[in-house]
């Protein structure tokens, strides 16, 4: 093989390397675009609302453990059936707590319940701001605020 042929061959390989790099980049770009489109569809189909309440533990099975409840801006929680979130639990009060979305954050306030409302293991005595991922206990029902 002459030097000239080797030189040309290497030049071709160099260009091939760059071309392949761009093909890979193009592939990533295509995957990303496809992903964005499907995310858009999912968003339109399902994700409305400002948050969800995942039920982690519920001894009397109302609401059942594993359910994810979608939330409006104002949610009353308690044993009275007229509450937005009806909790059938002997340790919950009729009007137990209020879960509200104000401004940019979620707040929970105890409504003078007998057994109290717990946030991340602490009993609350005034309205408390919540982050997504925080856990609440109402009676014996354990729930988590989610996006």
């Amino acid at each position: 093989m002459t030097d000239e042929v080797l030189r040309l061959l290497l030049l071709a390989l160099q260009l091939g390397f760059l071309a392949l790099l761009y093909l890979i980049l193009f592939g990533f770009g295509r995957s990303l675009l496809r992903d964005l489109r499907s995310a858009e569809r999912q968003q339109l189909a399902s994700r409305t609302g400002i948050g969800r309440l995942a039920v982690l533990e519920s001894p009397d099975d109302e609401p059942p453990a594993g359910r994810s409840i979608s939330l409006g801006p104002i949610n009353s929680i308690g044993r009275n059936v007229n509450n937005t979130i009806y909790v059938e639990d002997d340790f919950a009060s009729a009007n137990h707590a209020m879960l509200t979305f104000r401004g940019r954050s979620w707040f929970i306030e105890d409504q003078g319940s007998t057994n109290g409302t717990y946030v991340n293991g602490h009993r609350i005595d005034r309205p408390v701001a919540l982050s997504y991922g925080d856990e609440m206990v109402i009676g014996r029902v354990r729930m988590r605020l989610e996006r």
Binding site: M1, L6, L9, L10, L13, Q14, G16, F17, L20, L21, L23, I24, G27, F28, S31
Partner: peptide, 28 residues
């Protein structure tokens, strides 16, 4: 998707090794 995007590396990485070696050693 992961597999499809990993497969081009099977060409890219050995190609890069081959070019740099060939250029420095002056043989293919």
């Amino acid at each position: 998707v992961e597999l499809r995007m990993l497969l081009p590396l099977v060409v890219l990485v050995p190609l890069g090794f081959a070019i740099t070696y060939s250029v420095q050693a002056d043989v293919l």
